[in-house]
């Protein structure tokens, strides 16, 4: 039990939960990406909280957050690339209409 950490960790958990909901429930690729962004944001909140409360002397904690930000940008770039390509090809970015992508 470390109550000081709670506000940040619960926020992180809530963002993660909302992100999971969004990523699973949305039918549109772009909305789905938003869910993923929220998941990553939740992770970042936790990372910063751990850094701040537990290991403020280790810059590697901050470093990790930078990497997550990069991942967010990568995810956006690739996601939108795919979205444009699909939209051009079949005119839709709806998940329901991506039957050929089913594994």
């Amino acid at each position: 039990m470390t109550p000081e950490l709670f506000p940040a960790l619960i926020t992180g958990a809530a963002l993660f939960g909302i992100g999971i909901y969004g990523a699973l429930s949305q039918t549109n690729l772009v909305m789905l990406l938003m869910g993923v962004e929220l998941i990553l944001a939740g992770a970042m909140v936790n990372l910063v909280a751990f850094w701040h409360y537990l290991h403020p002397d280790t810059p590697a904690g901050q470093m990790f957050v930078l990497i997550v930000m990069t991942v967010m940008a990568v995810e956006m770039a690739v996601g939108f690339g795919v979205a444009i390509a699909r939209f051009r090809a079949i005119g839709s970015v709806e998940m329901e209409e991506a039957a050929e992508l089913k594994g």
Partner: peptide, 26 residues
């Protein structure tokens, strides 16, 4: 299903956050 998964994920993480001993504050 999405709502349930989201809720479960949230509750699980909260539980972990609450019941883990994170050690001493720096």
């Amino acid at each position: 299903r999405s709502v349930i998964t989201g809720l479960v994920a949230f509750l699980a993480i909260v539980a972990v956050a609450l019941f883990t001993n994170w050690g001493t504050l720096a």
